[in-house]
């Protein structure tokens, strides 16, 4: 009985020391993106504008605590700015937006260093378009909250990593004023028919990304391509935004270390 009690104590001590619990570093990625954009919004103009696009992004990914081998989650924040001209080049439209998103993905390790992940994402976007030449309709707000299936794949060998991600929002809500409603009327309190149900018939979006990571040491250099296509229709108004960007960034794994502990556990990163 005494021997059994001693064994139990040792087992509990080993558990509490966390020796068996895998370590879950936070993978942080900072990206800059630059490319082209095409913007259309029939509330402002029936013409399609084209120009350039800039963006900043931050993503924080981590294996989840409850089943770190097979689940990861990530938080994403972004800022985007676009400047585009009409086909005649005599009018400029500006677009600026911020976004935040959270995703939770189930991961699978495949042979040859390949990993795949699939799951869901929740995203919120907020932004505005400005077309200063217009009279009482010089701006258009954009806001949405969406849920999306997301898939990604990752291959890693030595210092090289190659990944791709795809996200297609399928449900949510988005903002649109009524067909000819001016923001002045909205400011006076008429909030009818401003929020719309987002589904593939009314709100279509495709966010795709492919990248190469070069990881000579603790920090990886990321170079990639990102495409973001948004198209929506509500109240007889149609909006579109297409951006194609080259992405460049860095990615690092961060780990909080308790100096009082001994670490010999497996390290599970959130690369997916």
């Amino acid at each position: 009985m005494r021997r059994f009690g001693l064994t139990l104590l040792i087992a509990l001590a080993a558990l509490s020391a966390g020796a068996a619990e895998p370590l879950r570093p936070v993978t942080s990625t900072w990206t800059h993106e630059a490319g082209g954009s095409r913007i259309a919004d029939t509330y402002l103009t029936p013409l399609k504008y084209s120009g350039w696009h800039l963006g900043l992004g931050f993503e924080r990914g981590q294996a989840m605590r409850f089943r770190p081998q097979s689940w990861v989650n990530s938080l994403r924040f972004g800022f985007e700015f676009d400047r585009a001209k009409n086909p005649s080049g005599n009018s400029v439209m500006y677009s600026a937006g911020i976004s935040a998103g959270w995703s939770m993905l189930h991961t699978r390790k495949l042979p040859y260093g390949v990993g795949i992940a699939f799951g869901g994402a929740a995203d919120a976007d907020l932004g505005a378009l400005l077309l200063a030449r217009n009279s009482n309709n010089p701006a258009q707000a954009r806001a949405s909250v969406t849920l999306s299936p997301q898939v990604s794949g990752y291959w890693r060998k030595g210092i090289w990593g190659v990944g791709a991600r795809l996200k297609l929002p399928v449900l949510g809500m988005f903002f649109s004023p009524d067909y000819g409603e001016l923001y002045y009327e909205i400011s006076l309190g008429n909030h009818k028919d401003l929020i719309h149900f987002a589904w593939p018939g009314s709100y279509r979006r495709f966010c795709g990304e492919a990248f190469v990571d070069i990881r000579p040491g603790a920090t990886a250099l990321r170079i990639g391509y990102r495409a973001d296509l948004l198209s929506f229709k509500a109240n007889g108004l149609t909006g579109r935004m297409l951006t194609n960007s080259v992405v460049i960034g860095v990615s690092c794994d961060f780990l909080s270390v308790d100096p009082r502990k001994q670490y010999d556990a497996e390290i599970i990163t959130a690369n997916y």
Binding site: L47, N134, L182
Partner: peptide, 19 residues
């Protein structure tokens, strides 16, 4: 009528009573 503006492909703009 509160005016709103729209554009033509050639770059001209039309303002009209919209509300």
């Amino acid at each position: 009528g509160m005016p709103a503006s729209y554009e033509l492909p050639g770059g001209w703009s039309i303002r009209m009573s919209a509300v």
